[in-house]
Amino acid sequence: MQKKFLQIWGWPIVLAVLSTFGLLAALLGTGIWHWLSWLSLAVPLAMIWYYTWRKPQA
């Protein structure tokens, strides 16, 4: 059961953690934290872009 749970919810959990970290880093930090927030918030956007524009598998 554990493997099936992680197969289904693994990436959404990773994206949620990255988004939360990015928002908190942008809100609470300065300097390098702003760069880390940009990077962590760009990952979900890159995945959205990839899955929107890839060719469907037949």
Rank of each mutant, 00 (worst) to 15 (best):
residue 53 W to R: 10
residue 58 A to F: 15
residue 35 W to G: 10
residue 9 W to H: 01
residue 55 K to A: 14
residue 47 M to F: 15
residue 31 G to W: 02
residue 14 V to Y: 07
residue 50 Y to F: 12
residue 38 W to Q: 11
residue 41 L to D: 01
residue 43 V to M: 03
residue 27 L to F: 10
residue 5 F to P: 10
residue 4 K to P: 10
residue 15 L to Y: 06
residue 57 Q to F: 13
residue 23 L to P: 04
residue 23 L to Y: 09
residue 20 T to Y: 12
residue 25 A to R: 02
residue 20 T to D: 07
residue 26 A to Q: 06
residue 50 Y to K: 11
residue 1 M to K: 11
residue 54 R to F: 13
residue 56 P to H: 01
residue 44 P to S: 05
residue 47 M to H: 14
residue 33 W to N: 08
residue 5 F to A: 12
residue 7 Q to A: 14
residue 56 P to N: 04
residue 18 L to E: 03
residue 20 T to S: 10
residue 27 L to A: 12
residue 5 F to C: 00
residue 29 G to N: 04
residue 26 A to E: 06
residue 9 W to A: 03
residue 21 F to K: 00
residue 57 Q to A: 14
residue 19 S to K: 02
residue 47 M to Q: 15
residue 31 G to F: 05
residue 57 Q to C: 12
residue 43 V to Q: 08
residue 32 I to E: 08
residue 7 Q to D: 14
residue 56 P to L: 03
residue 18 L to C: 05
residue 25 A to G: 00
residue 34 H to W: 02
residue 7 Q to I: 08
residue 51 Y to N: 08
residue 34 H to D: 08
residue 13 I to L: 11
residue 49 W to C: 14
residue 20 T to V: 10
residue 20 T to L: 11
residue 3 K to E: 14
residue 23 L to Q: 01
residue 57 Q to W: 12
residue 34 H to P: 05
residue 39 L to G: 00
residue 52 T to P: 07
residue 50 Y to S: 07
residue 30 T to V: 13
residue 42 A to M: 06
residue 4 K to C: 07
residue 17 V to T: 07
residue 53 W to C: 12
residue 33 W to Q: 08
residue 36 L to R: 08
residue 35 W to V: 06
residue 39 L to N: 05
residue 12 P to T: 09
residue 8 I to W: 15
residue 40 S to C: 10
residue 28 L to V: 09
residue 18 L to Q: 01
residue 10 G to K: 02
residue 5 F to H: 09
residue 27 L to V: 01
residue 45 L to C: 03
